[in-house]
Design a binder for these strands. Structure first.
Lengths: 119, 119
DNA sequence: TACTTTTATACAAGTACTTACCCCAAAGTA
DNA sequence: TACTTTGGGGTAAGTACTTGTATAAAAGTA
């Protein structure tokens, strides 16, 4: 799962900066390329793993799983597995994750507007 | 400047996905750890290079310059240099950059709230 | 003269992110 | 029997991100 050194200079810096800058705090939680995209797709309601995969065809399975795990650890996403075969796993937003909606919406609005302007 | 291969699989995927998902489009422009942070600091008004450096002590000069350049290329940030020695360079948001304010504000609001909840 | 200031650039090395490919369980279906 | 389905795990290799250190110009200051 690509372990991240707890004590790297990098990690330390990111943690320090999060204390004083709220945007830095947010980026530590949902930064990176895929997380906001995953959260955006989940904001329309819970989805199965395979549905997410279809909704975001460009992401590899590895990345999808990895980010879903990190989002679980940060308590933004909830994983619900039913013990059947083949597996039936559903991902949904937690309360904290649901609160990200205004952020994701603001992003989507800006994105659509910017795409239009540059056309 | 760490050239990025135009034709990497990675790049291709990111471009493809941007077409259908507005959040993906946004992440292609302001994704990564530092860009939103830089934009956030510039949203309070234009700043000199050295002011940005002081405002974000955890970023290295390399990263700061590199991201400022990319933001210029994406037409989100404007660089204004006065031809004096020592140099006097000011960075400010473009019109498109200024429109990101709702996004950055939504982030800040969520961050402050989440920090409070988890205390 | 030597040191400081500001805004960078260049190169090497380390760390993280992403892809590519192969593997698995256990029930259902051909 | 053999193949399909779902939700992953493991490893290696490639690519990008980040740091660290050295370097520069040209005027002002000690």
């Amino acid at each position: 799962m690509t372990a991240i050194k707890e004590s790297s200079t990098r990690n330390f810096n990111k943690q320090v900066s999060a204390i004083s800058c709220p945007v830095t705090y947010v980026m530590n939680k949902i930064g990176g390329h895929w997380k906001p995209i995953i959260l955006y797709h989940l904001s329309n309601g819970p989805k199965r793993y395979s549905e997410l995969k279809r909704a975001i065809p460009e992401i590899t399975e590895k990345m999808l799983i990895q980010h879903l795990k990190q989002l679980q650890e940060d308590d933004l996403v909830l994983r619900t597995a039913e013990p059947v075969v083949p597996p039936f796993v559903t991902y949904s937003l937690t309360r904290a994750g649901a609160k990200l909606q205004p952020v994701l919406n603001a992003m989507a609005v800006w994105g659509l507007d910017d795409m239009k302007e540059r056309r």
